[in-house]
Design a protein around this nucleic acid. Sequence first.
DNA 1: ACGCCCGGTTGATCGAGATCAAGGCGTCCC
DNA 2: GGGACGCCTTGATCTCGATCAACCGGGCGT
Lengths: 246, 246
Amino acid sequence: MNKSVIDLNECTNCPIRHRAVCARCETDELEQLESMKYYRNYSAGQTMIWAGDKMDFVASVVVGVATLSQTMEDGRTQMVGLLLPSDFIGRPGRDIAPYNVTAVSDVTVCCFRKKPFENMLVTTPHVGQRLLEMALDELDAAREWMLLLGRKTAREKIASLIAIIARRDNEAKSAIPGGQMSVDLPLTREAMADYLGLTLETVSRQVSALKREGIIELEGKRRVIIPDIDVLMDETGDDSDGGPLI
Amino acid sequence: MNKSVIDLNECTNCPIRHRAVCARCETDELEQLESMKYYRNYSAGQTMIWAGDKMDFVASVVVGVATLSQTMEDGRTQMVGLLLPSDFIGRPGRDIAPYNVTAVSDVTVCCFRKKPFENMLVTTPHVGQRLLEMALDELDAAREWMLLLGRKTAREKIASLIAIIARRDNEAKSAIPGGQMSVDLPLTREAMADYLGLTLETVSRQVSALKREGIIELEGKRRVIIPDIDVLMDETGDDSDGGPLI
DNA sequence: ACGCCCGGTTGATCGAGATCAAGGCGTCCC
DNA sequence: GGGACGCCTTGATCTCGATCAACCGGGCGT
């Protein structure tokens, strides 16, 4: 594979296997990365990084779900990102964390010591290009979320969240022909509320309403069955065709 | 200046003078850029780019103010970005615009034909690194805005918007010792509402309230005098020390 | 001079979602 | 078993911002 651009899922040589550093990895880059990486584990509910912490590493999520959040002095909090496996934590050229990073489930991250990682960025353009792509994708997601936060109703917010998680979850497994989907909601009602700019009571009420109307079904508290994804999409307020595109 | 990293404001050789492509420009890069650039002008109120348009260029704002916005089918709209001189429009690797770009004042942009620009990205890492920095800054701004949209009151939103514009405006002119600042609000009440996730009536009422309480003064409709920036900051809900930092 | 339009202001009322409060159901630990 | 705790649900009420509506003033074209 030396020097050839390869697909993430075929990248069997790579010990890390994450978009951030592997999508276009080359063997000599991998050797460099090997020498600067180490793993950290966190348990569900644990705050991995506090806003204001000194960061001497960047990292990539390996397993689990984490959130990025901001809190005001009086306790109001807003989630500003959802971190899933392959998502990147930290930023080259900055060493104080601006957000809280909290493990939702048990989480393993692969850390890279910051200085050598930044040096590598300068010498190997592939990694920088991949980071740029990822940052722009994050920016699109943030802007989509701004529309949700600023203009959607509580019901639309809930439907959008479920639809987004469902889409992401089922894009790996190829779309199911019957139209029915089953999705794990990794978040508590409170975390959903912090993501959507609502209170947990409103989240609970709106989930109940969608259930009552047969748009979703619940299996336990955290598993959602979507009988017809198109019916759910109608509740999101989004136009039918697709996501962000500058 | 060949091959040396130079500061934007000293970059007198550069015909474009924008962060996007000049912060670390080198003479041979500039020659490349020269060959692929052209200018476009738009008048106030004009929509420069519609969501869905084919983009065969990327661009950098030279003069004026423009907005990036999303609209739902029923007309609800949300601004997702404010474009000021030196801000970048478009994204390498994508050719359909996902947002509306609207000129607020008369606007001049410097366009670069897309294919050659993308080729240049591959060959000259400086430009890519600069774009990554800019994208990450935009991401921070978007996340700060998510907190505002999700969790702040109308009054806090207005105060935050004025404070942000004031800060940005006066960072060029070194901070004024007396504490008094004077700021041009480039946006109409409706545009402010679309930015803040409010209605124009609420914006008007809250601006009036801040004026009535002496926190701001108005000079005409569009110029704001801030007698004491710290008093205004107290109304934003932000904690005293500073912006985002992963 | 006139009317018109655009952007802004202010008032009255309404309603979605916040807030306050009570209670239900698992799970864990003593 | 039984309490304690975490997470969720549901009800009653309140409130902030939306909505509907009237009006103001300046710029512009005729």
